[in-house]
Write a protein that binds this DNA or RNA. Sequence first.
DNA 1: GTCTATATATAGCGTAGCCATATATGGAGG
DNA 2: CCTCCATATATGGCTACGCTATATATAGAC
Lengths: 111, 111
Amino acid sequence: MTAHNEFKKGSAEILILALIEDRPRHGYEIAKLIEQRSHGELEFHVASLYPMLHRIERRRWIEGRWIEKAGQRRRRYYRLTAVGRKVLAAQRRNWREFIRAMERVALVEHA
Amino acid sequence: MTAHNEFKKGSAEILILALIEDRPRHGYEIAKLIEQRSHGELEFHVASLYPMLHRIERRRWIEGRWIEKAGQRRRRYYRLTAVGRKVLAAQRRNWREFIRAMERVALVEHA
DNA sequence: GTCTATATATAGCGTAGCCATATATGGAGG
DNA sequence: CCTCCATATATGGCTACGCTATATATAGAC
């Protein structure tokens, strides 16, 4: 159901990690990218996203630093750590396993 | 991650509805089927499952009735209601949308 | 006689995502 | 000029889902 999909829970981590895989991004940018790339089907409210960023930074999966530019609100850019890269790879494997398992149990008819 | 996959949250409903699509089943049977068919990758603890069954029965998606047989603990068999059938169809559509959206955002490289 | 599988149930916990609200700045439009 | 919108981050309080632990009860195996 677009912005209120019941399957969304637990998917924020992998989305964040994947989006900063190639280059650092700030929170607001990540939120907008998720919304745009999913055509509005996944929409993490910033109020969910910022605490999530803090959590996974505490776990050392990502590392943030403040960037200040004149005439601009300060932004916190997050980059993926080595640990985060491993976690992302593991979550991608888990994701594949999960959708295969879902298909076997409940969605056999047109997996 | 087998029994503790981070993507599991929110998936119980569709699994339950799908498993009683063709014939009524009781809670314990549903739990065992999820575990077996997913080869242990999805494992909903019965302590999660029974409250979930009560919840979706209150929503009228499923309807349960007690079956008692001699020399057997009583079982509550749940069948899918007409509403439940529509919800299941909608959740299957949402599921397809969701995995497509996830691929677009985060898993492009080998969707 | 105890252990395991079957079968259902509740209390209490942690966490993810939600809404509301707060703060702050730059640019566009009336 | 002033208000609105987009940008940008943050917190408090809420709900829902799945968890552990615990309880009850019976049949069959060892």
